[in-house]
Computed example of a mutant assay.
Amino acid sequence: MNEPVSYKRHRFPPEVIAHTVWLYFRFPLSLRLVEEMLLERGVVVSYETVRRWAIRFGLEYVQRIKRKRPSRHDTWHFDEVVVSIAGEKHWLWRAVDQDGYVLDEIVQARRDTKAAKRLLKRLLKKQGCPPRRIITDKLGSYAAAWRQIMPRVEHRSHKGLNNRAENSHLPLRKRERVMQGFRSPGGLQRFVSVFTAVHNLFVPFRSRRCALATHLHRLCAMAEWRTAAGVAA
């Protein structure tokens, strides 16, 4: 069981810190915009303080957020997207399930079979059980990795079937433009680890998007966020 988040040696109340981290990862806001929004509410902090809080507390919060339970009936969709970091190409490999829930993502320097195998192995370890089916685009690296890692799982390779994984990149692409890119592969990996967990928590599954269900989902998500951060409602 995770220990409560420690706010020792921080002069601001935990509620302010938790709200700041939520603003930064939940919405496409720059550090300076978060600073301005806090100032409007009478909280005077620098954008550097916002950045430090995001790094210091972001991962601690998401480690306390409940993950969706895996099932052998799940379908995993895979895709990879290029991200330019300091003028060099890197690839963000991502897996999502049939509901659009991001299962895992990993930043890698290559787009080959070794990289695909690494994602599949990591995902199997994290989920604890294989899916019913995997869906990928026509990239041959997926087929090669599938034959070595999970040959008994049904594999469908078709670009038209993989829109769910491709669309999952859009929130990060929007954020990338606001942040004007990422400085390092490690920085990108740390950011997406929190950003994706927050997105998973607050964005309802595709099957639950009527107005009332969305409203209730967000209320529950906010309550879970406060619990993870260890702050009062």
Score class of each variant (00 low, 15 high):
residue 134 I to L: 09
residue 99 D to A: 10
residue 89 K to Q: 09
residue 87 G to E: 03
residue 42 G to M: 07
residue 27 F to V: 03
residue 116 A to M: 06
residue 52 R to M: 08
residue 34 V to K: 05
residue 35 E to N: 03
residue 96 V to Q: 03
residue 51 R to W: 14
residue 50 V to C: 01
residue 52 R to V: 09
residue 70 P to N: 08
residue 52 R to S: 12
residue 125 K to W: 04
residue 77 H to C: 15
residue 25 F to L: 14
residue 39 L to Q: 15
residue 111 R to D: 03
residue 76 W to L: 12
residue 55 I to K: 15
residue 92 L to F: 01
residue 38 L to K: 01
residue 41 R to S: 07
residue 33 L to Y: 04
residue 37 M to F: 05
residue 44 V to M: 06
residue 76 W to S: 13
residue 53 W to I: 08
residue 132 R to A: 14
residue 59 L to I: 12
residue 97 D to I: 09
residue 41 R to I: 01
residue 63 Q to W: 10
residue 130 P to S: 07
residue 118 R to C: 08
residue 128 G to V: 07
residue 113 T to G: 02
residue 115 A to E: 00
residue 82 V to D: 01
residue 88 E to L: 08
residue 40 E to A: 15
residue 43 V to R: 10
residue 88 E to S: 10
residue 61 Y to A: 15
residue 99 D to W: 09
residue 53 W to F: 02
residue 101 Y to G: 05
residue 25 F to C: 14
residue 103 L to T: 08
residue 90 H to L: 08
residue 114 K to E: 13
residue 110 R to E: 11
residue 96 V to T: 12
residue 101 Y to F: 13
residue 37 M to E: 11
residue 137 D to R: 07
residue 85 I to A: 10
residue 43 V to P: 12
residue 54 A to Q: 02
residue 34 V to F: 03
residue 89 K to M: 06
residue 59 L to S: 14
residue 40 E to M: 13
residue 41 R to G: 01
residue 53 W to L: 03
residue 48 E to Q: 11
residue 126 K to I: 10
residue 73 H to A: 04
residue 109 A to I: 12
residue 68 K to N: 05
residue 115 A to P: 05
